[in-house]
C-alpha cells in the first residue's frame, strides 16, 4: 500500500489537504469540528489535555495542540479551517496563524500582504473599467 504522489507536492511551503493528510489528521480535525458547539469549547477549555485524549489524538498532535504549534499541526494533518477553530483558544486568528507558520509576527505578516498587493490601483487603471469610487 502506498500514498500516491501528486503534481502539487512540489509547491513550496504548502500542505495541500488531500486524502493522505485528511487520513492522518482525522482525529485532530474531528476534535476541532466539535468546537462548533459551545459546550464542547467549554469542556476543552476546562481540561485541554483530557479533551484531546477523549478524541484520540496522537501524543504529537496533543502536545502541538496544547502548545499552539500550528505549523506542526499542519504537518500532522490539520486542515487550516479546522486549525482556525483551535487557534481561537490561543487568542489567534488566521492572520496570526499565517504569521506563526512562518515564525514571524502578525504585523510582519500583514506587511507581506500589503507588499503583495502594492500598486493594484495602477493595474486597475491600466485594465480599465474598474470602480474607483
Amino acid at each position: 500500500m502506498v500514498w500516491q504522489k501528486h503534481d502539487y507536492d512540489g509547491i513550496p511551503g504548502t500542505y495541500v489537504f488531500d486524502g493522505q493528510r485528511s487520513h492522518a489528521g482525522y482525529a485532530l480535525n474531528r476534535m476541532a469540528f466539535s468546537f462548533n458547539r459551545v459546550e464542547n469549547r467549554e469542556e476543552f477549555a476546562r481540561d485541554m489535555d483530557a479533551y484531546c485524549r477523549k478524541y484520540g489524538l496522537s501524543d504529537e498532535q496533543r502536545e502541538a495542540v496544547l502548545n499552539g504549534e500550528f505549523l506542526k499541526l499542519l504537518h500532522l494533518g490539520g486542515n487550516v479551517y479546522y486549525l482556525a477553530k483551535i487557534a481561537v483558544f490561543h487568542g489567534m486568528n488566521v492572520q496570526d496563524a499565517g504569521a506563526a507558520f512562518q515564525g514571524i509576527t502578525t504585523p510582519e505578516f500583514q506587511a507581506i500582504l500589503d507588499r503583495n498587493a502594492e500598486g493594484f490601483s495602477d493595474k486597475l487603471q491600466q485594465k480599465g473599467g474598474y470602480w474607483h469610487g
Binding site: 500542505y15 499542519l74 500582504l113
Partner: peptide, 12 residues
C-alpha cells in the same frame, strides 16, 4: 493562501 510557510501570497 492561509496555510504553510507560503501563507500570505496575493497575485494581483
Amino acid at each position: 493562501q492561509l496555510q504553510g510557510e507560503r501563507a500570505g501570497i496575493i497575485d494581483v
